[in-house]
Design a protein around this nucleic acid. Structure first.
Ligand SMILES: [Mn+2]
Ligand SMILES: [Mn+2]
Ligand SMILES: [Zn+2]
Ligand SMILES: [Zn+2]
Lengths: 146, 146
DNA sequence: TCCCTAATTGAAATTAATGTTCAATTTCAT
DNA sequence: ATGAAATTGAACATTAATTTCAATTAGGGA
């Protein structure tokens, strides 16, 4: 539920001495309603449907705050643009990206994760984070084209 | 051996109607001698030790050619900067990156690769490429610090 | 060898995304 | 209501990638 996440943000904002503004509240609400991988520009567009006056910089800053609060995480796929999605500290997932339609499919594979740890151990690394991004063609695009 | 790779580049250059210049030859030779993950800037610095007149743009363009020829591949880790390394079409490897000293360790795990394919199949994807980047602390840095 | 054309070079300009500044405005505790 | 502190957004700055373009160079043919 969004409500829970909204409270997390409000708690975070209170601790940080942030004030409540229509702009930021609107940006946060829009982000929390989405379940996509949004670029700053994407979110800016969504938010402007509600309030066309909201500036890009405010969206940018709010996404940083959302990331800082633990509610959002920044992802970078091969197009180089930063994208933000909801972060669930309990869960982890990686991504499959369609090179044709851009669809992003999430997956989690405990066995892969375990093997990653093994490899890292063997090489003396203590792993903090990882990205496993796979690029290819989704079933829909494969049917429609070649 | 470099010689083989140099011939591959010369073959590629001939087919493309590229002329031979000291600058490009020097850049190619320097890249082929290296076994690192070089940013454009890194290679520019290396090359300038030989010929300080060589411009950034030429290094940039030559790396694109090396990639096009199949001798180099561009990598992007979390710092966002493009890095180039030798590409061996027979081999594939992924990376462990030390967050402290920046060391990059390569690994290959057939089992992980197989599981990746399984996951993608299950989700209807035909995978073309992937990146598995792990970030953490190498053994040396863990001993030296915490 | 000389010529000519196409390729090359490198400084400077452009792009595209991220990040920062600052004057004007808004919030909110008092 | 007051005023200090936070916020906003347009404009500016930065960064790495990429392109432009005038001057130079390479190399095939006369
Ligand atoms: Mn995701
Ligand atoms: Mn590598
Ligand atoms: Zn698709
Ligand atoms: Zn290290």
């Amino acid at each position: 539920m969004d409500q829970k996440r909204l409270e997390v943000f409000q708690q975070f904002a209170a601790e940080k001495g942030l004030k409540s503004t229509r702009q930021r509240d609107s940006i946060v609400a829009t982000f929390l309603k989405s379940d996509a991988h949004l670029s700053v520009e994407d979110l800016h567009h969504l938010v402007q449907e509600v309030n066309p006056k909201i500036g890009y910089a405010t969206v940018y800053r709010t996404l940083k705050l959302l990331a800082e609060s633990g509610l959002a995480v920044e992802r970078k796929f091969d197009d180089g643009q930063a994208r933000y999605e909801h972060l669930d500290p309990e869960e982890h997932h990686d991504h499959l990206i369609c090179l044709d339609c851009g669809e992003i499919v999430e997956f989690e594979d405990k066995q892969i994760e375990a093997l990653q740890e093994e490899v890292a151990d063997r090489l003396g690394f203590h792993v903090v984070s990882h990205n496993l991004d796979m690029y290819g063609y989704c079933s829909k695009c494969r049917k429609e084209r070649g």
